[in-house]
Design a protein around this nucleic acid. Structure first.
Ligand code: ZN
Length: 263
DNA sequence: CGGATTTGACCCGCGC
DNA sequence: GCGCGGGTCAAATCCG
């Protein structure tokens, strides 16, 4: 019962469409434990939905209902991402996005708890991309190995990698949320290793790339902050953890089957 | 001394 | 084909 002093588990819910090669899949992602050592987080939170199709209305409807039940102001705006405007930038993000600003006007813990309760009431759809994920995992492992050798060996490895890459593009679900915080890395219960930093165009602040330190887990996240508001941090998660958060706060919030199932 | 971070180079998709 | 821009790698470095 070692409850961390200034940490709270925050559960978010995000819905996204995961487009398979033939048909679209509606994935329901939840159990978003965020561990924060400050109180500014309660100011504003925005959840960003990446969808690969245009008919995400039922999902949004459900979310809006959910949020409305928690007495919060919800603003849904369909727009193109600011980084992926119709100008010549970020060509691989041309998929339409839906920005959802979720601004609770009460302590966020209650909202989160309500969200969590609603979570439990609403059943989770089975993940249809679990098998695909395994497949992709194997492929990516080999790809990385090839790329590793490519730096020292040469072209054959690259050829092999290209053939494997042309097979299928690994499209892992990404969901991002922006918080108003002073620290850039939010302790979400997982251990992250920074593997890159890039200065994106039109943004004055660099973007950091993190990866889960677990070996078999390849969840990535990127952290950047808005140029207009340096206090706003956008954290984008990509992929799903194949393990439980190895941190010392876990049992306080009862991760139970929900977290183990979803993360 | 082991693991995380830094940081310049490299890869790769895509638009022109 | 070339250049651009974002993502990743990995040697060097830092840090506990
Ligand atoms: Zn992980």
């Amino acid at each position: 019962m070692s409850t961390t002093s200034s940490s709270q588990a925050i559960m978010n819910q995000s819905l996204f469409y995961h487009q398979d090669q033939d048909q679209d899949q509606l994935g329901l992602l939840s159990s978003f434990p965020v561990n924060l050592g400050f109180n500014n987080f309660a100011a504003s939170m925005a959840i960003n939905f990446h969808n690969y199709n245009n008919n995400q209305l039922p999902a949004l409807k459900s979310f809006s209902d959910l949020s409305a039940s928690s007495s919060s102001s919800l603003a849904i705006s369909e727009a193109v991402s600011s980084t992926n405007n119709n100008t010549t930038e970020t060509p691989n993000l041309t998929t339409p996005e839906t920005h959802i600003s979720f601004t609770p006007h009460k302590p966020i813990r209650q909202d989160i708890s309500r969200l969590l309760s609603l979570h439990r009431s609403s059943l989770i759809n089975p993940w249809a991309w679990g098998s695909e994920e395994g497949e992709c995992k194997r492929s990516e492992g080999e790809v990385q190995y090839d790329r590793h050798n490519h730096h020292q060996l040469g072209v054959s490895a690259m050829k092999m990698k290209r053939s494997m890459k042309g097979r299928r593009k690994v499209r892992e679900p990404r969901f991002c949320f922006q918080t108003l915080s002073d620290v850039d890395v939010l302790d979400d219960g997982y251990k992250w290793r920074k593997y890159g930093q890039k200065v994106v165009k039109n943004t004055h602040h660099p973007r950091s790339y993190y990866r889960c330190t677990q070996e078999n887990c390849r969840v990535k996240k990127r952290v950047e902050r808005l140029a207009e508001d340096p206090r706003m941090v956008i954290t984008t998660y990509e992929g799903r953890h194949v393990h439980s958060p190895s941190n010392d706060l876990e049992d306080s919030q009862a991760p139970s089957q929900l977290t183990s199932f979803l993360w």
